[in-house]
Design a protein around this nucleic acid. Structure first.
Length: 338
RNA sequence: GCACAGGUGGCCGAGCGGUUAAUGGCAGCAGACUGUAAAUCUGCCGCUCCUUGCGAGCUACGGAGGUUCGAAUCCUCCCCUGUGCA
């Protein structure tokens, strides 16, 4: 799932995302609440209408901002007080408020309000963080059941109702992860996410947490690992049974000049590509690789042209979506054989 | 011709007697980015050498002299640029 925090997958327009085959993109509750405001978006028919995105949409709850806006927030049992990174104004996010905002935004999938536990976190800290996330999961669900679940405007799926996913936390402690997963499943969410990963921990640890948690989540509901990963990681996780993943890496790295290719990383800013007329990835059939050379992409980067971010992003998303498409076909093939 | 103001490393631009190979910015060269405060951040960026070290040597602040223990910084002359007046 390409990440579109502020109602845009940075540098690419919605029609391009459609042509790339993106079936679902992310938006962010905290960012859209601050600007342009969830009530404004509600009045304009919801976030699908507002940004003109006819396919599926997922809003992250703001839980990640509890983590990333560390310097600008204060966490209590009740919720989180943020100082806006835009103007310094103070805002309180509670599970109930996050639900209200997400209901107003009207994405297909809303996420429970959680606390993305930092790494490293000692046992006591992870337990405390988990306690908070569990209480918030309960409150998110109760509030959502009372006020949410309306039909969402989605051109391609007109009958779809908004659903709510719970998020597994627990730091890097397997037993905490398990306990969290079991309790969330008891609550009966529409889908389950594994959060708090790729926050600086060693990769084997990420893998272990996913491997230990995934089997506890119902197979007949979407299982989503949040915030991952590198190309080889998403393929691995998908084969392990992960249904959904999102990551800013393909888009952010693209804007910074890093292209993912079938031959590995390619930093398009490098001098060695100054007159390289070959495509970024000879094995890629995306609209960028079919038409533009490494030399041109490097030039756009050097010249700080906006098209640079756009073309780089298109390629990286095509590459990522291509990985998922191949994995999907491969898994469907295996399913058909058995 | 006269009067001011200037000439600093690829460019712009600080510094105006001593930890100054010389603050910054740009350009350049590499690296990093994992539920986006990111078109961002980090490192290198005069030359040469090596035991790669807050290492050694060399060359540098328009040019040539001078003052001084010591000068990009002060003095003299010259060259060049800008502005104003003739």
């Amino acid at each position: 799932m390409p990440v579109g925090t502020q109602g845009t997958v940075k540098a690419v327009a919605q029609d391009v995302l459609e042509s790339l085959g993106a079936e679902i993109i992310l938006g962010n509750t905290y960012h859209l609440y601050l600007r342009p405001g969830h009530e404004a978006i509600r009045r304009m028919g919801g976030v699908h209408q507002f940004i003109s995105w006819p396919r599926a949409l997922l809003t992250d709850s703001g839980g990640f901002q509890v983590f990333s806006l560390n310097a600008l927030r204060k966490v209590t049992d009740e919720g989180v007080r943020f100082r806006s990174h835009l103007d310094g104004s103070s805002h309180v996010f509670t599970p109930e408020h996050s639900m209200d905002v997400q209901i107003a935004l009207g994405a297909d999938i809303a996420m429970a309000f959680d606390e993305c536990t930092e790494y490293p976190a000692d046992r006591a800290r992870a337990e405390e963080s988990l306690r908070l996330t569990m209480a918030w999961a309960r409150r998110s669900l109760d509030h959502f059941r009372a006020h949410g679940g309306e039909v969402v405007w989605c051109y391609e799926f007109p009958e779809r109702r908004q659903s709510l996913f719970g998020i597994v936390q627990g730091g890097m402690y397997v037993d905490l992860r398990r306990e969290c997963a079991e309790r969330l499943v008891e609550m009966d969410f529409d889908g389950y996410a594994i959060g708090g990963l790729s926050v600086g921990e060693p990769r084997e640890m990420t893998l272990e947490m996913i491997a230990e948690t995934l089997p506890l989540l119902p197979k007949d509901k979407p299982r989503y690992v949040m915030g991952v990963g590198y190309p080889d990681e998403i393929e691995l996780y998908a084969r392990m049974g992960v249904d959904m993943m999102d990551c800013v890496l393909p888009t952010r790295a693209a804007r910074h000049g890093l292209l993912f290719t079938s031959d590995g990383r390619l930093n398009i800013k490098n001098k060695q590509y100054a007159e390289d007329q070959s495509p970024p990835d000879a094995n890629c059939a995306c609209m960028v690789c079919r038409r533009y050379s490494r030399a041109y992409l490097r030039h756009l980067m050097q010249a700080h042209e906006a098209l640079s971010g756009t073309l780089n992003t298109i390629h990286n998303l095509a590459f990522y979506l291509g990985i998922m498409e191949r994995v999907r076909q491969s898994l469907e093939g295996e399913a058909a054989e058995s």
